[in-house]
């Protein structure tokens, strides 16, 4: 097992789709850069299970925490002040939480790759 695979194994609940887009984004980098990018990505990554739990909070207390955490501030404010569109939006996000986590993870992977390319000289 090489160092890149070890770095990937450190991230919990990694599924095949996420693995494929990581390969796709980090493919152009060499091994050392890939490890740096994966470390940056690990800090920014949203665990799908955590997103599910944060969405569940919306049924009990404050809705929209998951949207704030994913960086969608407008949607977060809307969810917070309308109780998740009268709980309907919260329930939709409970169904859709994997897609949501994947979407924000794709973005942070692209950002991590861009950051590593800046550090290159």
């Amino acid at each position: 097992m090489n160092a890149v695979e070890k770095e990937i194994l450190l991230m919990p609940n990694m599924d095949g789709t996420e693995r494929i887009f990581l390969h796709n984004v980090l493919g152009e980098l060499n091994e050392e850069e890939q490890i740096t990018a994966l470390q940056i990505y690990r800090a920014k990554r949203k665990d799908p299970q955590m997103m599910l739990l944060l969405t569940l909070i919306g049924l009990v207390g404050a809705a929209g925490v998951h949207r704030f955490i994913m960086g969608q501030i407008g949607m977060g404010i809307l969810y917070f002040f309308t109780a998740g569109f009268c709980f309907i939006g919260t329930i939709l996000d409970l169904i859709n939480y994997r897609q949501l986590a994947l979407e924000s993870n794709k973005q942070s992977a692209a950002e991590a790759a861009a950051t590593v390319k800046i550090m290159r000289r």
């Binding site: 789709t17 494929i20 887009f21 390969h23 796709n24 984004v25 493919g27 939709l92 859709n96 897609q99 949501l100 794709k106 692209a110």
Partner: peptide, 27 residues
């Protein structure tokens, strides 16, 4: 080699890449 085979994969970050109704997601 594995990476090269994955390159034409559906996951791409360029905008306007999806064809047809591919831009419609459940949400």
């Amino acid at each position: 080699l594995f990476l090269r085979s994955l390159r034409p994969c559906i996951f791409s970050f360029k905008p306007f890449r999806s064809k047809g109704l591919g831009f419609l997601k459940p949400e």
